[in-house]
């Protein structure tokens, strides 16, 4: 199979996944209790007539399959509908907030890879020495500290005490620093483990032993060959967890009062605002799929073995 063919298969699979996720979310939200119409009207003044009218206006009086078909024909036309809560158009709303979330996801993934790979490699090289133990501790702290807590801690230390970075907002690179630290450490925790493991495996593989035997310096062996192999798990983990990182922004965006689709979707779920939830799920699915296609591509760049197998 050529690379192009392979990519076509992957992309068509991806499209199926994205629409599948929309279908799934449609039904999950449909099952949510509570009537969105009633939450839109003021109970002290609403009349049953107003309720019925509004329901009709939103098409919520139709049977579920009609709503379903209608929604999907609209999405195919690029129309994501409007928010039930404040009748805002969904597409522009998401496009407005997506960049902030993407920026944060990107910086925290980058930080996660840098910290994760560095500590993972050090950990493997100095196996069972103090640096190994320390790295593993850091990794476990990363995955066992809730982001809202570490976020507040960072605000207290770096905003209130030192006054180095802003505590909130989404304007300017400075506002990215603390949220990135908070979210990046979670990703780093996962990566440290994976990199360490695969480094250890690689170190004991015959080709490394051969390289050593050939008289390459230890540093050359480690950085040129072993590290290259260790990058693969790191990137895969990021690829698989990019969705989680984006979802992590739900909490982080609230803590740091950042704009972004995380906060939008959290509000939307509470309000049962289906069009908005659908819109966000669609876009996060798209991001997930694109990132994972890139991850697939990057294997062939990083790992010569994969390249050969094409």
């Amino acid at each position: 199979m050529t690379l192009v063919n392979k990519m076509i298969v992957k992309i068509s699979n991806a499209v199926v996944s994205i629409f599948g996720s929309l279908v799934l979310v449609f039904f999950i939200i449909y099952l949510l209790p509570g009537d969105p119409v009633l939450s839109m009207l003021d109970p002290s003044t609403a009349t049953p007539e107003m309720v019925a009218n509004l329901r009709k206006e939103l098409g919520l009086d139709q049977p579920v399959y009609v709503q379903f078909v209608e929604y999907f024909t609209n999405v195919l036309k690029g129309n994501f509908g409007q928010s039930i809560v404040n009748s805002e158009q969904v597409l522009p709303k998401i496009l407005e907030h997506l960049p902030a979330t993407l920026a944060l996801t990107l910086t925290s993934s980058a930080l996660a890879v840098v910290i994760g790979v560095t500590l993972g490699v050090l950990s493997a090289i100095f196996q069972n020495r103090w640096i190994d133990v320390l790295s593993r501790f850091i990794g476990l702290f990363g995955i066992s500290m809730p982001t809202f807590w570490s976020g507040i801690l960072l605000i207290l230390i770096f905003s209130v005490y030192f006054n180095w970075f802003p505590a909130m907002g989404s304007e300017g690179w400075q506002t990215l620093v603390l949220p990135t630290l908070s979210l990046g450490f979670v990703g780093a925790g996962l990566i440290i483990r994976m990199v360490r493991t695969s480094m250890l495996e690689v170190i004991n593989e015959p080709f490394i032993v051969t390289l050593r035997a050939k008289g390459l310096t230890e540093r050359m062996v480690m950085y040129r060959h072993a590290l290259r192999n260790a990058m693969i798990p790191a990137i895969t983990i990021i690829g698989l967890n990019i969705g989680e990182l984006m979802a992590g922004t739900v909490v982080i965006e609230t803590v740091f009062s950042r704009q972004g689709i995380g906060r939008i979707v959290a509000d939307a779920i509470m309000a049962k605002d289906l069009p908005v939830i659908q819109g966000v799920v669609f876009f996060s699915a798209v991001v997930y799929v694109i990132v994972n296609l890139l991850v697939d591509l990057s294997y062939s760049i990083i790992d010569p073995r994969v390249r050969r197998s094409h």
């Binding site: 699979n13 199926v16 996944s17 994205i18 599948g20 996720s21 799934l24 979310v25 999950i28 939200i29 099952l31 949510l32 209790p33 698989l240 969705g243 989680e244 984006m246 979802a247 992590g248 739900v250 909490v251 979707v265 959290a266 779920i269 509470m270 049962k272 939830i277 799920v281 996060s284 699915a285 997930y288 799929v289």
Partner: peptide, 19 residues
């Protein structure tokens, strides 16, 4: 499974908890 993976876990958890 792929479809489930495209929906971030916390989002799914959030929706289920809300539901």
């Amino acid at each position: 499974i792929e479809i489930l993976m495209t929906i971030p876990g916390i989002l799914l958890a959030l929706a289920i908890a809300a539901a």
